[in-house]
Design a protein around this nucleic acid. Structure first.
Lengths: 316, 316
DNA sequence: TATTTAATATACCTGATTGCTATGAAGCTC
DNA sequence: GAGCTTCATAGCAATCAGGTATATTAAATA
């Protein structure tokens, strides 16, 4: 016996409300509509759903049992509705974000936490990678967006790039580093200290190479490599080693007061940190909201950096 | 956002089946119908439910989440359907049966067990009472049927009566009772022994009274009263007391070989055990099936009694 | 790469169903 | 029994769900 789901829901509402009129109102329908539905149901079933002639409308056992199933449908329908509403406002869903390890660890993870304070029902699936992998992942729809440094985006790739921060690297060291005591720092002195190599394959690795070249050398004294950001920072804290890091990453650790940037200018890369997405991406509100949050966060970060630097200048 | 339940179910079927065509088939619909439903859904939501251009049809996160809710509705709908089917064949439901204690305990309880061997999903709610209570209970729709002795049913009461067994009482005693040894049993001797009184209010109680009167006395030596059937039987087994019982009840205990009926004729009541129901009862299949089973069981019982008595005659 | 094949989308039509308003019938309350 | 509330019925308009036929698209194969 095939039953119309709508009918069962109306039945459930009536049983729950204890009357046709109220049940109809609960569903935003008129009483005659629901009344007819019940009459049709009874006719089709050949069985009554309510005992006749009792005013506090009393369901038969069958009526009650069917109403229970209708109730299940009703709650499913409600849940589906609220799911859609949540989804539309970006309050629900999944965002798959990929990015380069250092930025993700230093900056993005915290921004994700902030985002989820406002949108707790959006799940974030993070993954790591560098530009080629990330592009492939976006193409294959394994991630919704990537956050990574990028120099130039070839047109027609179906990708959209939005800059978040200009590229700017610094040489990082611990706050007790001897070079910080020098009144005047000769760039060549950098080569006197051991270096931590950024992950191979990362843009930073290439930047380190060109830095070394600009210093007139062919290679630095690489003593440690392969570690994640935390490993590098910890190593940095415990030694006089140097490494190259994005300025924003060092900035993010400013409250630690354990690492800082050397006051030495190094060539900044022709590259900016940015948001990479498909242009013809199906507009997933949660993803939109997340991207908006990330952009907002970086904008705030830019201002913060600017204010911070002015403060430093003032204090000099 | 209001969503049509039917649409969600179709979505669920498609997601589950992994294709529109198969999903449609699963629901007994054609492919275009379901295809259009999905298109409409996507249009209304403003969000895609499936990622385009992939043949092993792949739902978007939203599509999958909505399909889950649709799945819930689908199982509810299936359950409702099977509920109705079960109900129509009397395989599901509740039967509320009232009856006089002795018959219920001695005969009906066993028949209920047999019935449920065939219809395990029908719940039986048993209650006790005598005719006036039972009639009131039927009227108030507290029970679906009553099984009790009844003499005459006034017309126009909205009740229907179906005879199950003719009224026939016997004097019961334990198998080692001294009166059973007597070659010829004078009815007056019955009064020499102590008696167990049936529950006050029961027809049997009235029968005992008229039996005593027919023996020329005004009252028997009542030593025990108020007990249920089991109490009475146990008392009977442990003493030379007598009591009046329906023949069928004593018959039901024949395999116990602990109580029996005295070979003495006593007036049988103008009353028959029967099934009492409302005439305009809404036809609940489970109730119908149960009544049919009860009538069948009593018919079998009648034959059994007849065969049993013939065997007894042969053996004499 | 061209061709075939399977699956999905679209177009169009019909009948059923839903929703409404208006109104009659039936219970409950006092 | 009067008045009030609630349920049932009738009639009507609009929508929608379902069907068949067909175009389009994506996958599979040569």
């Amino acid at each position: 016996m095939k039953l119309d789901e709508r009918h069962l829901i109306q039945l459930a509402a009536v049983v729950q409300a204890g009357g046709v009129t109220e049940g109809a109102a609960m569903l935003g329908l008129t009483q005659p509509a629901v009344s007819r539905t019940l009459a049709m149901l009874e006719k089709r079933l050949g069985e009554p759903l309510f005992v006749k002639g009792r005013r506090p409308l009393q369901p038969t056992p069958l009526g009650r049992a069917l109403a229970d199933h209708g109730q299940a449908m009703l709650v499913a329908a409600r849940k589906a509705s609220s799911l859609v509403d949540g989804f539309r406002h970006g309050r629900t869903g999944v965002v798959r974000v990929g990015g380069t390890p250092f930025f993700m660890d230093a900056l993005i993870s915290g921004m994700i936490a902030e985002f989820q304070n406002a949108a707790p029902d959006v799940r974030i699936e993070q993954s790591y990678g560098y530009l080629p992998d990330l592009r492939a992942a976006i193409d294959a729809d394994r991630i919704d967006l990537a956050i990574c440094p990028i120099d130039v985006l070839d047109e027609g790739s179906g990708m959209r790039f939005q800059e978040l921060l200009p590229g700017r690297n610094v040489v990082a060291c611990r706050v007790t580093h001897p070079l910080l005591l020098k009144r005047k720092l000769a760039p060549a002195e950098l080569l006197d200290y051991p270096w931590i190599a950024p992950p191979s394959g990362s843009p930073l690795f290439a930047d380190l190479h060109s830095l070394v070249l600009s210093l007139g050398a062919t290679e630095a004294k690489i003593r440690y490599s392969g570690g994640s950001l935390v490993s590098a920072i910890n190593y940095l804290k415990a030694s006089d080693a140097l490494t190259i890091l994005p300025h924003s990453v060092v900035f993010a650790y400013r409250n630690d007061k354990s690492i800082t940037a050397l006051p030495v200018n190094i060539p900044h890369p022709e590259r900016a940190l940015g948001l990479l997405r498909r242009t013809e991406e199906i507009r997933v509100p949660a993803v939109e909201a997340f991207c908006a949050h990330i952009r907002k966060s970086f904008e705030d970060l830019r201002h913060l950096i600017k204010r911070h630097e002015q403060a430093v200048i003032w204090s000099l």
